[in-house]
Design a binder for these strands. Structure first.
Lengths: 202, 202
DNA sequence: TAACTTATGTCACCTCATGACAGATGACAA
DNA sequence: TTGTCATCTGTCATGAGGTGACATAAGTTA
């Protein structure tokens, strides 16, 4: 049986509706001149309610990315413990892309929209970057665990930063489409392996 | 002769005064609850005038860092052309730290305050990171020039990201003091050289 | 149905940020 | 010194982002 009731279903529906309305308005009019009121009105909801779903205008724009990030972080945590930090991260990246390819097409669609939006909106690009780096703490713990150090270890922090770099380069300037994104990622990883000494992440 | 007139001097003075007042208020009360009006009042200036000097509350908080960044970027551009991207960046970092050590002690003092402030204020930490990455375009051009590629080159972008990583790791979690900062930087660079293959940035 | 929990709307309020306009002040030439 | 000009500044008005308080409506559970 589905344990979720009508209330929960409604909540998810308005959340999605807010995201979609916001994305469409942002893309057609521009992010900056679109007001929260307009987004709320498009979904027939009070502005106050908007802020109960999203803490800020930026959050609604980037929520899809955040969801993707969480998929990635979960994938990362469930990688086998023998994998080195680099292996675990790259595999988790591949898993995330695969999940996206096989999941709800609407989600992929939304992600494509967000990507177009971010490319047209510098402040959102900055926000996305910050978001990626927010995952640092979890990433740091995961790397520290795999390297057998604590999170203060300078080398661990260095490894984390490099991995973060890979994540950023792969995902920040991508095409909206999934296949080229995947290809781009593999090229980046090849470059990384050319540049880094074997065992650098151990 | 000094070519700057009274007007220019006054402008610089209020700018500095605004920065110092803002930093002190932010540190004593907290960044978030301090209003622009308070900062303006502390310098006996209208709030409107504040916004003629700084585009935002964040800008006044991070202005000292931005100044430092500009010193760094100028130092980078004037490095000899034979240096590899990595050499040029690391030397520019050292030059920047040296300039700070030998420059106006007030500036170093301000920088220390900013650091304490950033450590206590996540949103500013995010802002700082974004600022650092804003320097990317210039950094990318410099790296592309030294590698003899154009700025779209994937490997160039990778090199830029790694260098950016170094910058971040060195400057973001530092002690307020200058000497330990310098030492930390050297340790990070040593780690980087352990991890990266010779010639990785060529 | 009754009692509860929770989502929502309304209202009020604050801060950030910007445009328009007028007055004050420094810069500069005659 | 004086007059003109550019520019800095203050005042006022406006709009958007964001939040707290409280009542109400709706879903949930007994």
């Amino acid at each position: 049986m589905t344990t979720i009731g009508l209330r929960e279903r409604k909540k998810r529906k308005t959340r999605i509706a807010l995201i979609d309305a916001a994305l469409d308005l942002f893309l057609t009019q521009g992010y900056d001149i679109t007001t929260v009121d307009q987004v709320a009105a498009a979904v027939d909801v009070s502005p106050r309610t908007f802020f109960r779903y999203f803490a800020s205008k930026e959050e609604v724009a980037l929520s899809t990315c955040r969801d993707g990030q969480e998929i990635f972080l979960r994938a990362l945590c469930s990688r086998p413990g023998e994998e080195s930090p680099y292996q675990a991260v790259t595999q988790a990246m591949r898993v995330t892309l695969a999940a996206l390819r096989e999941g709800d097409p609407d989600d992929a669609q939304r992600l494509a929209k967000v990507r177009r939006l971010i490319d047209a909106t510098p402040s959102l690009a900055a926000g996305l970057m910050c978001m990626i780096n927010k995952g640092d703490r979890q990433l740091t713990e995961e790397v520290a665990r795999r390297r057998g150090t604590d999170t203060d270890d300078l080398r661990t922090q260095f490894v984390v930063s490099i991995l973060n770099t890979l994540l950023r380069v792969c995902f920040e300037h991508g095409s909206p489409d999934l296949a080229p994104l995947s290809e781009r990622m593999e090229r980046i990883l090849a470059i990384a392996e050319e540049c880094l000494r074997p065992g650098w992440d151990r």
